[in-house]
Design a protein around this nucleic acid. Sequence first.
DNA 1: CAGGTTTATCGTAAATCGACGATTGACGCT
DNA 2: AGCGTCAATCGTCGATTTACGATAAACCTG
Lengths: 110, 110
Amino acid sequence: MPKTAPCCPPAEPTPPVPADESEANEVLARLAKALAHPARVAILRLLVRHEGCIVGDIVDELPLAQSTVSQHLKQLKAAGLIRGEVDGPRVCYCVEPGAVALFKALVEGL
Amino acid sequence: MPKTAPCCPPAEPTPPVPADESEANEVLARLAKALAHPARVAILRLLVRHEGCIVGDIVDELPLAQSTVSQHLKQLKAAGLIRGEVDGPRVCYCVEPGAVALFKALVEGL
DNA sequence: CAGGTTTATCGTAAATCGACGATTGACGCT
DNA sequence: AGCGTCAATCGTCGATTTACGATAAACCTG
């Protein structure tokens, strides 16, 4: 049994765009806020690119302290854009494709 | 000669998506930040819908004080998403379609 | 089980945001 | 000239963001 990705398994379905406009505004605002910082955009891109997980390699890629990166990850997770799973001593983050798709749909609908 | 829209005339061309990734991250983050608040999303939608201008009618549409709306408009303008022109005693805001298109392109490219 | 890694959390400080009321500025009208 | 209207700006407040170092928690490895 290979020690393959213990991460990113289920892949939630894409949530629907809210019918209520003001609710759609809030959802879009929440997602936009999560990407309102270059570092978080960079993190999301990293995770999309290595489509799957990645760990604190993220820290190596960014000119930020480990604790700061952790904070950004927390915000991305709170917004539902990424998911993190514990893999032994390290933690594996991955994109939540449904959330990204929702974001794209909301932006497209502007 | 009708007293038609003194607003939204030139319509700048859509700026290109930056080739440099970290620059693209910054641009995307700036635009996302501008939409990181439900009120600003609502304002942008209002302007898109009445495709063209609109004045302080925006204030009537939102449950916010006039000064607060003005602040949000200022942020949207600073991000380049909207443009405002003085039309006599009132001010006419309108969408900057190129900036919205750029935003959509950047999000799509995630 | 002791030690080393990895990551999250805490505490802190500076900066920015979000909202409001009050004021100022610009303009058209009478 | 003076008045009313519309919108931007100012000043203020509390809350949030961003960043960091230091600490704590979880977990392999020897």
